[in-house]
Design a protein around this nucleic acid. Structure first.
Lengths: 190, 190
DNA sequence: TTCGTGATGACACCTGGTGTCATCACCATA
DNA sequence: TATGGTGATGACACCAGGTGTCATCACGAA
């Protein structure tokens, strides 16, 4: 046996989601989360940089996957093709076992301005990673930002459909569908 | 003479920008800002909902202008035409006298994660207003969100060019140019 | 004169977040 | 076995953002 119980981060995450579900995000203090996990406030902040971050942990690898997939796409691939490959690769990291937690997190986040802000920052990080990787491929700049923005929109749309009640299709499939719709819509704008 | 000096909000805003410029955003406390304006911390929070908000005040009318202009666009206008009209109307509210303050604010915001978050929230509010107004016009949803996102990108791009050192062209003109470039880029994506 | 109103000050309070030091299981090495 | 280093944690003090609440006081209306 080790000195402390293992899986500290996971215990904190579970405690936080439980408490947020019971009493709402801002009626729960960090000290309470830590206490339920058998830890102290100070330890919470050693694992999460702030109270919001506990709801967004685990998104760090996504940027990497997106950027690497775009970088590794065939030289002949168009920006949208590269984005499509990247979104597929990223979405495949979300198996059905993550759907329920996605629902829980989203239901807490969606009602809270503070948390919406953090969500937008994460979203911007993803689109920024995509845009940067496209520029590395030589895509010039209005096009790179635009393609990345479309990719971000597809990701969000797909995510919301994925966690919608009754949904049982794969995340990757839904994202691809959303991207196709967006590309088709491109022709109707102007 | 009134009991208190007038222009409370403006005095707080000036004090905040001065102090942020002198010592940086997080080495300045709200109490110090209030003190320089001859007020107290409590009064600061009566005028701004939080410390960050002092840097983003005055953006409230923009959403309204965008939405109303889109709503009032000719029935035959395409989504991009409606967006273009809205962006022009909004950008015309930014005369050259606001450019220097724009630079100050942006230089404080750009280095700070907390402030970037708030900026993203404001940005999302603007694109949300545009997307909503387009839907009211009967634009179906992938297209409405996409057009709004393009509008948001044009606005940001134009803004950054407007405050760039040496820039002397009108904000509205720069935004229109950015929008044109984005629409052209649409055809190159793939 | 009187009364209501609105903006402010004063003050206590909570909570998120940080700096710092002590503690103690674990591990490597002698 | 002994010894010393390391890493995660606890304990504790502290700061700053933000809020609730009550008192104050100029101003305008009646």
């Amino acid at each position: 046996m080790s000195r402390w119980e293992p899986n500290t981060r996971e215990r904190l995450l579970d405690a936080a989601l439980d408490l947020f579900g019971e009493r709402g995000y801002d009626d729960v203090t960090v000290a309470e989360i830590a206490e339920r996990a058998g830890l102290t406030k100070r330890t919470f902040f050693r694992h999460f940089s702030d109270k919001r971050e506990v709801l967004f942990a685990g998104q760090e690898p996504l940027s990497r996957i997106l950027a690497e997939t775009i970088a590794g796409a065939p030289a002949a691939a168009t920006p949208i093709e590269a984005i499509a490959a990247a979104l597929t690769a990223a979405a495949e990291a979300f198996g059905p076992e993550r759907r329920e937690r996605g629902r829980q997190v989203q239901s807490v986040v969606s009602g809270h301005s503070d948390l919406r802000e953090r969500e937008l920052l994460k979203h911007a990080t993803l689109t920024g990673a995509m845009a940067g990787a496209l520029r590395e491929r030589g895509v010039a700049d209005p096009a790179a930002s635009l393609a990345a923005e479309i990719g971000g929109l597809a990701f969000s749309t797909g995510f919301h459909r994925w966690i919608a009640p009754g949904s049982d299709r794969a995340f990757a499939e839904l994202v691809r569908e959303a991207l196709d719709e967006l590309v088709a819509a491109t022709a109707t704008l102007g």
